[in-house]
Design a protein around this nucleic acid. Sequence first.
DNA 1: CGAAAGCTGTACCAAAAATTACAAAACGAC
DNA 2: GTCGTTTTGTAATTTTTGGTACAGCTTTCG
Lengths: 289, 289
Amino acid sequence: MCNESTIQASAQSTLADRIRHEIDTFTTSEKRAAHVLLSHYPFAGLETVAEFATRAGISAPSVLRFVTRLGFNGFPEFQKHLREELEARLLSPLAKAGPSGNSQGAPALASFADAVIGNLNATVENIAPAEFEAVVALLSDQRRQIHFTGGRFTGALARYAESHFRIVRSQVDYIDGQPSLWRDRMIEIGRKDVLVVFDIRRYQEDVIALSETAARQGATVVLLTDPWLSPIARVARHVLPAPIVAPSNWDSSIGLMLIAEALVGAVTRRLWDTAKPRMEAVERLRNGE
Amino acid sequence: MCNESTIQASAQSTLADRIRHEIDTFTTSEKRAAHVLLSHYPFAGLETVAEFATRAGISAPSVLRFVTRLGFNGFPEFQKHLREELEARLLSPLAKAGPSGNSQGAPALASFADAVIGNLNATVENIAPAEFEAVVALLSDQRRQIHFTGGRFTGALARYAESHFRIVRSQVDYIDGQPSLWRDRMIEIGRKDVLVVFDIRRYQEDVIALSETAARQGATVVLLTDPWLSPIARVARHVLPAPIVAPSNWDSSIGLMLIAEALVGAVTRRLWDTAKPRMEAVERLRNGE
DNA sequence: CGAAAGCTGTACCAAAAATTACAAAACGAC
DNA sequence: GTCGTTTTGTAATTTTTGGTACAGCTTTCG
């Protein structure tokens, strides 16, 4: 390896970079320490050895071995280095800029993330705040029943949204996309109901059929889809599109997930007076169990 | 809990502000301490009492009296406060703008997206490329069977990942977190198996139990979790953490979703020769129906 | 399958840190 | 100038912290 004797806080290479670089040469518990340090960098390292160890789920001696392996001559020296690095970083505000390094090796995750972040920015730009707010208001109407559904892949998103809304308010359920499973449930759906449907390209026949049926019966349909718009858009009251292309053989649904989580957050805030007791009750039930 | 209410790190007023305001009520040596602290704020306070004292040209007890007068219950508490303040400052480069309110104007979706994007950047930074690649290699090993599972909310993510992997390769399944459903399936899990588990805080007992059982039987555990690490990290071979805090009453799982999608993409590319025919076959089956 | 190497945690120890007690010094008031 | 009060430093004390030896366990390699 490199000459580990040279620890100095070069403005360029932070200790974090070195750890990321060498992490696969670490032992299991050293990796744990590294993860904790990196995810709370550098503050996790400024606490005591015992606290650091607890946080990482390892023993104190393992933490000591970790810092020794990094080339430091004891824990206090390690902390001193972190402080100095932090001070330097704070004095030059540009330090936090781009992930410049990111050299050759494996930008697999990084480049994918870049594309996704682009998608998220575009998602925000393409959705009118008024539209978003309208959906929030709709989902905050406690007199309405809310149903979630989605296709092969997006069904998981619908479930994700439903599992949150279920706690925030009552009258929430998930409808499986398979026709045999929803056909009979349709008789209950009417003007007071809201259907939130996730559907992206390779638009799924059965999901479309479900949505059209619901719309025909007077339900209000909210559609989360890609920019090319699922056919469901024809019957939807509100359409929230999000880009889905990514450097992958698959589409990315993260834009839809963003919308879903933002909706959950906004509705929770709006219904806070009733949502809070519900959330606490759920918590109590879980603990009591 | 502890009544730190007296001191607490109000987002608004930093301790430095208070010191500046009260400095003329201090004694001579307290003023010296204050002056040193302010000129190297807050790093002077993060050293030991003795170092601080030397730097200020006063005695250690004077330093102690200084922090006591500031209202702290001992020097360590004082340091803890400084660390937290520093962390808060570093995490929000927007200075002290309290976004808590955010009531009307600010588009809820936009600010939420900003936070999520920050999470995604942090996610990329905190995961070592080597670690990511190791997981890709593991999931690309067609001789192994891969199981996905997750908790109340994260279960949907596990399903999402599983629905993709299922098409890319064989030997993929989803395990429901409920003990009654997985207990008997465990007999089949052994050294050749991989368990990919999603678990974020409010770590779920049954998911932990499932993972520990699998690990005990020799399965390789891959954990996607938050920066505080689910207890499952203790038995996991690979840990991929992602920040989850968002301006919402709920945690955001989008960082985990990013990792999941990136894994799907990378594995698909690596197994392309066998994955492509599979994907085409699935397509044909869907259309033929 | 068995032995060796390496990793990890428990228990303990030593060092250093924070804290307190107390007396000397500085300051002010009269 | 002296007394009383406040402030400050020295030194002893206690608590906490970092560090180490060792034994059990896991993994690896023959």
